[in-house]
């Protein structure tokens, strides 16, 4: 029953978004597209956090890798968007999986810090390689994405539906993985890492798979974003993106699908409407997130352990 209800809610959410895509004026669509971009990153993070129970702040780096790689590869291989997407996704998948392997044994906060360092290293490398990447100023992306049957992609609507499609794909893959053997292994790692190991789950292997999937998804989102906005700069793929993705996922409930997406769409829209607050915005931003964390819906972290609460600060 619950699964059917969730499916119905999901279908209506996507139908609503598709309708929005048809009726909204172009400049409003741009804002929603930017929210969708963030939503894809949140879903990407959901693989390692929601399923594997690993906090990662490396999403910004993976997303940025996709964006920069695509921006640099397109002039070399005009028209080869699909091939480039495949190469970029595979490469970032491999990289993310490789990065996560040694980090697997770190505890929650430490893993967060280590992956945060990954993002900072990425940003600093982009700055240091300025002849290639344009440094802080970033670079213009003139080449257009071109897809079979659609040709060169321009305009807001096509990009909106590409983002929507990518989000839908990530939701479907996520649901599929969650219901699979791999998903159950990941959830086992999440609930009790030692017990999972004892039961024969190769923890490092399954978790790096989740990390890799999330990384590849972020890279694809970054690729779309680079061609849509027409420029790439390190500021777009910085720690801020990682933190935002993590915040929205935690607020929406890690491991769930609709909660995080709804959190992104609603809160981001709300936050973009508080321009009138001026300098008070940072404060309101912080308070809003704090309130959402304290009284928002609770994610998969506590499901299955209802009634049991850790003694304060007992770790794990």
């Amino acid at each position: 029953m619950a699964a059917a209800r969730a499916r119905a809610a999901g279908t209506s959410l996507f139908a609503l978004l598709a309708v929005l895509g048809c009726v909204l004026p172009d400049y409003e669509l741009l804002a929603v597209s930017q929210h969708l971009f963030l939503a894809v990153n949140v879903m990407a993070l959901n693989f390692c956090l929601g399923l594997g129970g690993q906090v990662s702040l490396a999403q910004g780096a993976f997303c940025g890798l996709g964006a920069y790689a695509s921006a640099l590869l397109h002039p070399e291989l005009p028209g080869g968007s699909l091939a480039i997407a495949a190469v970029v996704a595979t490469a970032v998948y491999a990289l993310a999986a490789a990065v996560s392997r040694p980090l697997e044994k770190l505890g929650e906060g430490f893993l967060a810090m280590a992956t945060l360092a990954v993002t900072l290293i990425f940003t600093n490398l982009i700055l240091s390689l300025s002849p290639l990447t344009g440094g802080t100023a970033g670079m213009m992306v003139d080449s257009k994405l071109s897809l079979p049957f659609l040709g060169a992609i321009t305009g807001d609507k096509p990009y909106y539906f590409l983002f929507l499609g990518l989000l839908l794909a990530s939701v479907l893959v996520f649901a599929r993985v969650r219901a699979s053997r791999l998903g159950r292994a990941l959830l086992a790692c999440h609930d009790d890492p030692e017990a999972a190991s004892a039961c024969g789950v190769n923890r490092a292997a399954v978790r790096s798979l989740a990390f890799g999937l999330g990384g590849a998804l972020s890279a694809l989102a970054g690729m779309l974003q680079a061609h849509y906005s027409g420029f790439v700069s390190p500021g777009q793929y910085s720690l801020e993106l990682s933190l935002k993705a993590l915040l929205f996922l935690v607020i929406g409930g890690p491991g769930r699908i609709l909660g995080p997406i709804a959190a992104v769409l609603l809160l981001e829209t709300a936050l973009s409407k508080i321009h009138f607050l001026g300098e008070a915005r940072v404060l309101v931003h912080g308070l809003l997130l704090g309130l959402a964390l304290l009284w928002g819906p609770v994610g998969a972290f506590r499901t299955g352990r209802a009634g049991f609460t850790n003694a304060p600060g007992a770790g794990t």
Binding site: E108, G109, L243, P254, L287, L289, L293, L294, N310, G315
Partner: peptide
């Protein structure tokens, strides 16, 4: 613990 961690992030913004 994850929410507690994120609360300190929200506190930092606030």
């Amino acid at each position: 613990p994850l929410r507690q961690l994120m609360l300190t992030v929200a506190a930092s913004l606030t």
